[in-house]
Simulated assay, not measured.
Amino acid sequence: MKTYLHHHQNRGHVQSDWLNTYHSFSFGRWVDRRFMGVGALRVINDDTIAAHRGFGTHPHDNMEILTYVISGTITHKDSMGNHGEIHAGEWQLMSAGTGVEHSEVNQHATPVHLFQIWIHPNVRNATPSYQQVALDPKQQPDQWHTIAGQENNALMYIRQSAEVKTAFINESQELPITRQHDINYIHVISGQVKIGQHVLNPGDALAFTNEDRITALSKDSHVLWFDLPE
C-alpha cells in the first residue's frame, strides 16, 4: 500500500438541521471514488448530533459497527433487546451479522460528538452481538489502548483480524507503532502529531506500511489507530 496523507479538507461534509458530519470515506450521498475505505476499514464518520435528535430505527447486516462518544451522551436501542446510554469516553461495538435494527438518539439538551466506524467482518451471517466498554484515554495517557481486536488484550472482540486502538498523547511524547498487519491508518481526533515526515492536524489521517513511531506536537493529541488486514 502506498503511504498517503488524507487531508481533513478532502473529507465529505454534510450538514442538516440536526447533523453535522464529516465522512473520511464515501458514505450516503457523498461519494468520492478516491476514498472508498482502507483495507477492511470502510467508514469513519465524525458526527455532531443536535439536542433531542438522532438516527431513527434502521437496519444493518454483515458489518462491525463501532461508536466512540467524544462528548455528550447518545442513547442506543436495538432489536437484540439492548437499550441504554453511551457516555463520553465509552465505546460500543455492534456486530450486525445476519441483521439487526437499531437507533442512536441524543435525548439530552446539549449536542453529542461521536465517531462511527464500520469494519468489514471476516465471518458473514454470524449471530448479531453487542458490546460496550468505558475507557477514556485522557485518564491513561501516553499509551495505546486496544479497544477492539481478537487478542486477549482487546477490550471488545471484533469479527475481523484488525485491531482498533486509541491514545491520548502529551506534548513531545512518543509512542511506538508496532504493527501486526501491512495496512495501518491513523486518524487524528484532536491536537497535532508527526508520523515519519508527515504532520497531521485534526481530521487528518495517514495510511502507511512502514512507520514505527508517532510523536505529539501539541498537548491535546488524541488519535485512533487501525491495524488492518488486506
Results as ranks from 00 to 15, higher is better:
Gly149Cys: 07
Gln92Gly: 00
Arg33Ile: 02
Asp32Asn: 15
Ile147Gln: 01
Ile74His: 02
His23Phe: 15
Phe208Ile: 04
His76Leu: 02
Leu66Thr: 04
Thr75Trp: 09
Gly12Lys: 04
Gly89His: 05
Trp118Met: 10
His76Tyr: 04
His87Gln: 11
Leu5Arg: 13
Gly12Asn: 08
Ser79Phe: 12
Pro128His: 01
Val193Trp: 01
Ile147Lys: 05
Thr98Phe: 03
Ala50Glu: 14
Val38Lys: 04
Lys165Ala: 13
Glu174Val: 15
Thr57Phe: 09
Trp144Ile: 09
Pro111Cys: 07
Gln15Gly: 00
Gln140Ala: 15
Asn201Asp: 13
Glu171Gly: 10
Glu90Asn: 02
Lys165Gly: 03
Lys165His: 15
Ala96Leu: 08
Val100Cys: 07
Ile65Met: 12
Ile158Gln: 01
Gln160Cys: 12
Val123Cys: 10
His108Gly: 10
Thr110Phe: 06
Thr98Trp: 00
Ala96Glu: 05
Leu19Glu: 00
Ile195His: 08
Asp136Leu: 03
Val123Ala: 15
Asn20Thr: 11
Trp225Cys: 09
Asn106Gln: 03
Asn10Tyr: 10
Glu85Asn: 12
Tyr22Ala: 04
Asn10Leu: 12
Glu171Tyr: 00
His13Ser: 12
Thr146Phe: 05
Ala40Pro: 10
Asn125Lys: 13
Gln143Ala: 06
Glu171Val: 11
Leu206Asp: 12
His87Lys: 13
Gly56Thr: 09
Asp220Lys: 07
Leu228Val: 12
His181Val: 11
Asp78Gln: 06
Leu93Pro: 01
Asn152Gln: 15
Asp227Ser: 11
Ile183Cys: 10
Thr48Met: 13
Glu64Ile: 03
Gln107Phe: 00
Ile186Gly: 03
Ile119Asn: 07
Thr110Asp: 14
Leu135Asp: 02
Thr209Gln: 14
Gln92Ile: 02
Tyr185Arg: 04
Ala126Glu: 13
Phe226Val: 06
Ala50Asn: 09
Met1Pro: 11
Arg33His: 10
Thr209Val: 05
Thr110Ala: 14
Asn82Tyr: 05
Asp204Arg: 04
Asp78Glu: 04
Asn45Asp: 14
Thr3Ala: 15
Ser221Asn: 05
Asp212Ile: 01
Gly84Thr: 01
Trp18Ala: 01
Ile186Pro: 08
Gly203Thr: 11
Trp18Lys: 02
Asn122Met: 10
Gln160Met: 09
Ser24Gln: 05
Val69Leu: 06
Arg159Ala: 06
Gln140Ser: 14
Asn210Phe: 00
Val38Tyr: 09
Ile214Gln: 04
Trp118Val: 07
His6Phe: 14
Tyr185Cys: 05
Glu85Ile: 01
His181Met: 13
Tyr68Ser: 11
Gln15His: 07
Gln9Asn: 14
Lys194Trp: 00
Val133His: 05
Thr98Lys: 15
His102Gly: 10
Gly84Cys: 00
Ala167Glu: 06
Asp204Met: 08
Arg179Asn: 14
Arg29Ser: 15
Arg11Trp: 14
Asp204Pro: 06
Arg29Met: 14
Gln173Trp: 05
Tyr130Ile: 00
Pro176Phe: 11
Asp32Glu: 06
Glu171Cys: 13
Ile86Val: 14
